[in-house]
């Protein structure tokens, strides 16, 4: 069923017939791609993942990130990357990926005796 949605704001009635699009028209294929946003704050050395947003291209993604994620002076540098280019490890493989490190405490450098007076280690 096509529901016609017509939105008039504050008495501003458009002259043309725009606005009366069938609601089902947007099937998702016209949506902008998703981007992941990384922000570096003033004190920080590294960019931290802060969230994601939609944008048509990289330029717009950076501008959108500026508007969405740095409104309260959170950052001084922005990275964006299209979400589809992020490759992640599979949570189902967690057992084989991470558990083997569990019983190998010798990989931590905690068995060395440090000379007295050595700090910041």
């Amino acid at each position: 069923m096509n529901i016609l949605v017509r939105k008039y704001l504050y008495g501003d009635i458009p002259e043309d017939n725009s606005g009366g699009q069938p609601q089902s028209k947007n099937n998702g294929s016209n949506d902008w791609p998703l981007w992941e946003v990384f922000i570096r704050n003033k004190q920080g050395l590294d960019h931290k993942h802060v969230g994601s947003l939609h944008a048509a291209d990289a330029q717009m993604a950076i501008e959108n990130a500026r508007d969405v994620y740095t409104r309260r002076m959170e950052g001084i540098s922005i990275w964006v990357v299209e979400s589809k280019y992020i490759h992640a490890s599979n949570p189902d493989e967690a057992d084989s990926m991470y558990d083997p490190a569990n019983d190998k405490i010798y990989r931590h450098p905690t068995f060395y005796h440090l000379p007295d007076g050595l700090t910041h280690i």
Partner: peptide, 11 residues
């Protein structure tokens, strides 16, 4: 609240 997409609404 009426922007074409959330990000542009905020912009």
């Amino acid at each position: 609240g009426h922007g074409p997409i959330l990000e542009q609404d905020i912009a």
